[in-house]
Write a protein that binds this DNA or RNA. Sequence first.
DNA 1: GACTCGAAATCGTCATACTTATTTTCCGCT
DNA 2: AGCGGAAAATAAGTATGACGATTTCGAGTC
Lengths: 264, 264
Amino acid sequence: MTTKDAEETTGHALDSPSDLGREPQLPQERGGARQGLHARLLAQLGPAITAGEYPTGSVLRADELAERYEVSRTVVREAVRVLESMRLVESRRRVGATVRPIEEWNVYDPQVITWRLAGSDRARQLRSLTVLRSAVEPVAARLAAELATAEQCAELTEHALGMVATSRGQQLDAYLVHDVAFHRVILRASGNEMFAQLGDVVAAVLTGRTQHQVMFVDPDPAAVTLHVRVAEAVRARDAARAEELTREIAVGALAELDILTPEE
Amino acid sequence: MTTKDAEETTGHALDSPSDLGREPQLPQERGGARQGLHARLLAQLGPAITAGEYPTGSVLRADELAERYEVSRTVVREAVRVLESMRLVESRRRVGATVRPIEEWNVYDPQVITWRLAGSDRARQLRSLTVLRSAVEPVAARLAAELATAEQCAELTEHALGMVATSRGQQLDAYLVHDVAFHRVILRASGNEMFAQLGDVVAAVLTGRTQHQVMFVDPDPAAVTLHVRVAEAVRARDAARAEELTREIAVGALAELDILTPEE
DNA sequence: GACTCGAAATCGTCATACTTATTTTCCGCT
DNA sequence: AGCGGAAAATAAGTATGACGATTTCGAGTC
């Protein structure tokens, strides 16, 4: 059972509600009136495309979509415009919106990431994101060590200690909260806006990992210790050490991934 | 032959030259301006917002925009939808599209990056991107060393040698071509789709650097040598060395940046 | 003074007519 | 028969008006 929780924090993020696009048609959900019909249509088309339901090169015609989903062309066009801005499709006159190859997608778009994480592309997306993390977070930690405010240092140790406190006895949910918060602080403290924006991505990865991993296993004690030491290094303004320790965490995350998903 | 038909049926010609307009916001065709009125409107609004012309919290009303830019509300709405998907604005009923704080923008969106690079935010954007590069490229080089095909290795050495050949005598343009191509190959060869997509970003950074730097100076010979050695390391499947050498390149790029732009 | 209810403003959606660009068809020409 | 170009067909793009939904604001009442 997919117990959902741990969605929180400020801002909106990549959380996809329990909206599984199994139904091939009819966005008829009177349950939750999300904002706007076009958003609902998007929530149908986006996952469908990223899941490969519409393969590369296939064409979406406006009238067809309008009829299929029982909305006006206006709504369809707005949704298509958004898909186009995500580079999922390319709209051409007299042809329609053709699905672009995956290499051209805006794979950094939070919405695209969410859709892919929710769909059949999950494993691949998770791997890409983890590799990205392994590249970014060590450098972010280095910068954080140089730039973090006293308050951010305090948050860091607070969450590191929180991880220690919740690392045993099946408290994975509580552990996850601290873990996510910890990495968010690091990324934000780096002072780089592009790093900071990866906070949601990291949250998604960590959440996904927790949900999909064997839930009985407590977190790796070594990883917990590393987090504590990173917090110490940042507080001590030891950039090199913060970077190196975070790199060790990243190595652990990659190794974990190799266990979970079969190598290609 | 462009013959003007004096069509009075609609009486709405968007290119009527007599219309001078004291609110002259007539988006002319421009390089990069894709087909479609909405794209042209977007090309006006996007840069304006990212440049801070519309500060955070300011509101864009649909009718107002429609009148100001002399387009229909249909066009305005599509443009706003796209801005919304980029998280530049948030559209609410009865309020309009309010500009979000920069921390919430989709700073990885290629279009947003382009706009910011072209506007007043240029220096900051360049710095963010360079830091990102410094994090990603070393890891990408490591992966490339493990995964690159023979053909990619060949391309790599080819471009590295090309850099050597054009590194002296004011051939900066030719040098740039090889430089960009080199980094593109590395990113692509890493096998990570998210890294690969940063190729355009790196190209933008390198191009911007060349354009804004003193054009008389030939590239740093040390950097050129490093590229050659990276190519060698990748060919030799020496992942650790490829990573380390690329990290040295990144350090150089960061140092260069500190010279150009005053630190904050 | 606080509370409620109604009116105004503005976005969201729909329907429709028309425009424009591109593809396809097909006719006439070589 | 093959080829080239004009005409037709098609679907996206744009414009416009109408209506619905919702949020905000203000006026009137307790």
